[in-house]
Simulated assay, not measured.
Amino acid sequence: MAMELTVVTVPDCPNAPILGERLARVLTELDANERVSITRHTVTDARQAARWRMRGSPTLLVDWIDPFADDTLPIGLACRMYRDEHGRLEGAPSVTELRRVLGQVLADGGPARGGPTPVWADALGRAGAGRVAPVEGGLRAVHQQVLRGFAETGAARQPGELERVAALYGVSAEQVLAELHAADFLRLDDAGQISAAYPFSAAPTAHRVRIADGPEVFAMCAIDALGMAAMLCRDVRISSVDPVRGQVVTVEVAAAGQAAWAPGTSVVFAGQQAACEPCASGVVAAAQACCGHVNFFTAPATAQAWAETHPQVHGRLLNQHTALELGVAIFGPLLAASPGPTP
């Protein structure tokens, strides 16, 4: 599978050509031009910047992850500065830094930031592989149609409704859905019907999400719910229940990235069950491993109390900022990424 590079800029960004020249040089040095696809997106407002998690222009995403991310930088339309290997500020990543990051990803296929994926994020983000389905074989096009169906109607598409999109790639919807299920982009029940397409659940869950000017939907877990606003570029209102106290937690997430939590002490516990069998692709299905263990809590002490009574679940307490960032990083690109041919 090709590594996907996405360059996100504001209009007429003066440093975009510099980044482009450096990318071309590094990819040639690494003999990687045929193993990499590059797309470019121009953003013009705060909502688009939030969807791409653009911390200034230009931003480079490597397999949908920002390897140079600095969480102290605000998301927005400003110019972005990078420190090179000597600590100097530049308007684009240096050739040396690009070579280091891209070389590592090409060599081992690991997460663009390097290092192992934390256990609590393994299943959520498909072991660092992300939830943006490959273009090949119509996987991304069909996947995006499924996601849009949930966002428009609150329900899963029927396989027959996806045949027209799948046919553009010379395959059947049944075949594509089976491949998406095997790689854990979505889940099928025993009858071949869509039971989940992360972040959406076809069945009721503890996490209700009201989409602005749209339906109420159910999220598979707390992180999935937090990623919906960025994915859809629409405001959402999340309503969930603390599993210990039974108290309602609400989060108003704006498409532009701001979030208001109530109670203000609320947190997320992101857990994964220790023993789970992988899918046919070798990826552990999030629905099996962690979706039931990624929840909102009214306070850190409550989340910690829950974790202590569930020793079979390994995980981590996430503050509001980290939980939102994780949700957006996983789900923000799903509908922004180009699907290839269109119907």
Rank of each mutant, 00 (worst) to 15 (best):
G227P: 03
T72Y: 05
H207R: 11
A123C: 13
V119G: 03
A206R: 15
A183C: 11
L168A: 07
A191K: 07
G315A: 04
D189H: 02
T298Q: 03
S172K: 10
V241D: 06
A229M: 07
V209H: 00
A219H: 00
P311I: 05
A256K: 13
R113C: 09
R47V: 15
A206W: 08
Y82P: 12
A275D: 15
L19P: 14
H41S: 12
V101W: 04
G125N: 14
R164I: 07
L226F: 07
M81N: 11
A178L: 04
A289N: 08
T342C: 09
L324N: 00
E21P: 00
V105K: 06
T117V: 15
D70P: 02
A151F: 05
A274I: 11
G110N: 04
A275S: 13
C233S: 15
A337I: 01
V209M: 01
V313S: 03
L147Q: 02
Q144M: 09
A167N: 13
L186M: 11
P17C: 11
G192I: 01
R126C: 10
V268H: 07
A299K: 12
A141K: 00
V7Q: 03
S94P: 10
A285V: 05
Q193I: 06
G125E: 07
I75D: 01
D184S: 14
A112E: 05
E325V: 09
L102I: 15
G292V: 12
G125D: 11
E90L: 13
A24D: 15
F297P: 03
L318C: 08
G246L: 12
E179G: 08
A323I: 11
T59W: 01
A254T: 14
Q288T: 13
A50Q: 12
R210L: 04
I211F: 02
G137W: 06
A166T: 11
A127Q: 14
G56N: 02
T342V: 13
P341I: 05
D190C: 00
